[in-house]
Design a protein around this nucleic acid. Structure first.
Lengths: 196, 196
DNA sequence: CGCCAGGTTGAAGCGCTTCAACGTCTGTGG
DNA sequence: CCACAGACGTTGAAGCGCTTCAACCTGGCG
């Protein structure tokens, strides 16, 4: 049977080319946490102190732009991905976003001070840290490019490819929000696509 | 008379709180370069080896998404800003974008190896490096948020606030492209705004 | 059973797109 | 010095897709 730690080891090997010896340095620090549907990974206005790895479940990161305004989903995170409020974590500033578990979820997480100690201790972990920052940048850059160059329908297809876990797990109107459109519009897009 | 270096010194003091002694370490490395309208800061498919500071002029960074497809402007950079192909520079990978001077422009620039030497030499320069990366992240994040939460008209007003230099310097259709709309649409938006 | 959350559908409206025509300004050559 | 060309901005007309509001349907659950 594969444990959460095994999954994480594999994921980090793939992501940063980290060998077992380096990974083992981190073993004392990872802890497991379980979320019920609707619980928050990181509360709004808190400083994000942990970096997480999703073992199972789906999270959405959203923002309420103004009083009484509609929530908009900035991104989804699913199994096998790193979850962290990047801006808040990198800058250790209060978070502008909400990150909510959309399903029963479980993660492994590490505290920022332990992670920084690993950075200091090991060149491979330092590389991991750089890659996380670059990934955050690339993730947002990719989202930006999607909005500049793709139609809502294309974004929908892209999302289905990247996050197949999502579709039986979260309400359609949250997906629509991520795509930058309204619920009924996504409903019609689906209908058009099915007709082909 | 204030020289380019004075402008840069002031800008970096404001941006990173750097004192004169630390800044002076960099004096041997900055070089000045002038661009004619239409020249490129960094060529497509090249690795970006320099970080620049705009003394005067306007650059646009754009991307051609597919063969025969329309160019779309990702961002503008104007006087007093840092100019660099962030992704290419940070990762030292070939650049996906074109960065073109829209007016006669002048910059100060530093080579990446000299800059990295400053990082190694000085804590204040290391901080500068971190701030550049965070700024790149925040810049793109801000653009992303603009697209999620603002109308084209609001984006237009925001751009006028951030880059007042642009409006007499670049064609309207480039601005429209940055805003994610077509030339005629921006023309009509202006008309509607003038009517109020 | 009846409620409620979530998805679909219809109708009206609005804003952006597209294509084409028409101004306007500027620089250049006869 | 004028005329023309080219680049750029504006305007009109038609179309399309997303929005909004509201009604209705469905399935899950107390």
């Amino acid at each position: 049977m594969t444990t959460g730690i095994d999954l994480l080891r594999e994921a980090i090997k793939k992501f940063a080319g980290m060998d077992d010896a380096a990974f083992d340095l981190s073993l004392p620090y990872w802890q497991e946490k379980h979320y019920k549907k609707g619980e928050f990974y990181n509360e709004y206005r808190n400083v994000c102190k942990h970096l997480g790895f999703i073992l199972d479940g789906v999270f959405r990161t959203y923002y309420v732009h103004a009083e009484n305004a509609e929530e908009k989903n900035l991104l989804f995170s699913t199994r096998g991905q790193i979850i962290v409020s990047y801006k808040s974590f990198l800058n250790q500033q209060p978070c502008n976003y909400h990150t909510e578990s959309m399903t029963a979820s479980s993660i492994l997480y590490i505290h920022i001070t332990d992670l920084y100690q690993l950075y200091a201790q090991s060149k491979e972990w330092e590389k991991f840290g750089r890659l996380v920052a670059e990934m955050a940048f690339n993730l947002i850059m990719g989202r930006m490019e999607d909005f500049l160059w793709q139609t809502p329908e294309e974004r929908y297809l892209e999302l289905m490819r990247q996050h197949p876990d999502i579709f039986n797990a979260v309400p359609l109107y949250h997906i629509a929000s991520y795509l930058g459109i309204q619920g009924p519009s996504l409903s019609r897009i689906r209908k058009r696509m099915a007709a082909k």
